[in-house]
Amino acid sequence: MELEFEGVSIDIASARIVSEVSLHIAPGDMVGLVGPNGSGKSTLLRSAYRVLRPTGGAALIGGESVWNMSAREAARRRAIVTQHTVLGAEFSVEEVVAMGRTPRKRMLDRDTDGDRRIVEQALDDVHMRWAAQRSFATLSGGEQQRVLLARALAQEAALLILDEPTNHLDVRAQFEVLDLLRHLGMTTLTALHDLDHAVSYCDRVAVMAEGELVAVGAPTEVLTPQLVHDVFGVRAVLDTHPITGRPRITVASAAHGPTTTAGDDARAPASTPRAEEPPGHAT
């Protein structure tokens, strides 16, 4: 299932939050959406949640605008993991995951053995089967995020949209969630806060600034030190991670002097793109 934003503009209280964003997420791709706070990432995603109706343009899932289909049909095509999940009541883990079956069930349908198998499989996929009968609220942040991922899986939608799934997680939990996303291999659009996650885990990266899409492409080509400086106002070095061998981005405050430039890292292979930033350049 592919996702396409077609010239999406969103006004909230007559202020333009998202401005003519066109972005295509091909089937099977994992695309990271990055940008400073307030750049319109979450707002853009909410147009695909079918929560915000775009002022202009449309979010298309499988070639159809989400507003031209029922909420239920949209939920059969895409699953969502939102940023803050505070449950208004104490559900068990199993109950939370079973909610993923909602768009697949009619009003009075009971949970069948088939549903239970899907829920168990989803819990297996995120390695949380052991917690099925536990209270969701008593789990750690990383465990909760994995359970929410299992709920999304139980929806059996081909497209996954996540809003900063690694927020508030400790380092290990962050990697667990990202590894899991990679491993699932679904068509994925995820807003990410950490540029290093975007560069090391995503097939493609889309960068937003002040409501506009400013760059899309392969992570190492897009997240150049120049662009990172222009958009995020920090200094950045792009090299290869000494442990994983994957691309790595290291950032530092723009206030810090040139002593933090890339050349200092002796272990970085010379072949990777790296940058010496002229301080005070750009915005």
Binding site: R46, Y49, R50, V51, S70, A71, R72, E73, A74, A75, R76, R78, A79, I80, V81, T82, H84, T85, V86, L87, G88, A89, F91, E95, V96, M99, G100, T102, P103, K105, M107, A152, Q155, I161
Partner: peptide
């Protein structure tokens, strides 16, 4: 099911097709 979904937040409920 819809009542359950309401308890997990508006966006998440929309994600479940409510």
């Amino acid at each position: 099911r819809a009542l359950n979904a309401l308890m997990i937040g508006d966006d998440a409920a929309a994600g479940l097709g409510i």
